[in-house]
């Protein structure tokens, strides 16, 4: 089990030219991810979801200050352990397509990822991972700049899955994809979870997250408000505990498409 326990995060920023101050970005983040589930984290952009992913994997920028605790299978997940597990048992599917090396063909990048993860036959593992995301033949041999946005996302997904990681953190894996590719990526995350992996799906797109997720954690202004089973999001959202989660659900275009009353989404005091 991957546990995040009252995580808080400040950034040191310059105020004026010389003075640095700490700007809180995550205030109170708690959730737990178990094997075999797709756990969606939904919330507005800028709420700090990506920072949480970077904190789990241990890739925060140098001016970040972290508090709270991370645990993996009961033991603290500290910086040395993150470095040891990153790319092996813990894999991140980054949001930015710039994460691909522009000078290396995609299938080689996937092979390298498998190699770093310590797979015994990296080439075969890469081949299998690429086939799983539907990148076969010529398209797998292209350079990143020859790939469409959807293909690049699938290469990133293949890199994360080639190493047989137990824990996958997918940061906005479907952004910029057209419906067919988006469903393909989400379906594959579901299959990975069904195969016994724990998948954390970070997204702003509540509706499509619901189609694959078991549980949903609602994130607002650097705070996790509640974790609800996916089937709590139905009807008028009565089963949801927080006003923000209800408003988020009701604001979907196929529900009320409603602008929520201001007090429900006001920043937390």
């Amino acid at each position: 089990m991957l546990e995040i326990d009252h995580l808080a995060l400040d950034f040191l920023r310059y105020r004026g030219l010389w003075q640095r101050e700490a700007v809180p970005c995550l205030r109170d983040v708690s959730l737990s991810l178990v094997r075999g589930e797709v756990h969606a984290v939904v919330g507005a952009s800028g709420a700090g979801k990506s920072l949480m992913a970077q904190a789990i994997i241990g890739l925060l920028p140098g001016n970040a200050r972290l508090r709270g605790e991370l645990r993996l299978d009961g033991a603290p997940l500290d910086a040395p352990r993150q470095a040891a597990l990153r790319g092996k048992r813990l894999a991140l599917i980054p949001q930015s397509l710039a994460a691909l090396d522009p000078l290396v063909r995609s299938h080689r990048q996937v092979t390298w990822a498998a190699q770093r993860a310590g797979v015994s036959a990296p080439r075969a593992a890469a081949e299998r991972a690429l086939t799983e995301v539907g990148m076969v033949g010529d398209s797998a041999r292209r350079y990143p700049h020859q790939l469409s946005g959807g293909m690049a996302r699938r290469v990133l997904l293949a890199m994360a899955t080639a190493g047989e990681a137990d824990w996958l953190i997918a940061d906005e894996p479907s952004v910029g994809l057209d419906p067919a590719h988006r469903d393909g990526v989400l379906d594959q995350l579901r299959r990975l979870a069904d195969a016994g992996k724990g998948v954390l799906l970070i997204t702003h797109d509540l509706r499509h997250a619901l189609s694959v997720a078991d549980r949903v954690t609602v994130f607002h202004a650097g705070t996790t408000l509640e974790t609800a089973p996916a089937d709590a999001f139905q009807g008028r959202g009565k089963a949801l505990a927080s006003g923000y989660a209800r408003a988020l659900w009701r604001a979907l275009p196929d529900n009320d498409f409603a602008r929520p009353p201001v007090h429900e989404v006001a920043p937390l005091a």
């Binding site: 507005a44 604001a251 498409f257 602008r259």
Partner: peptide, 14 residues
Amino acid sequence: SSMLDAITQAELWQ
């Protein structure tokens, strides 16, 4: 609005 969450999206369009 494709990068926006549901609430922000609804607010913007309304």
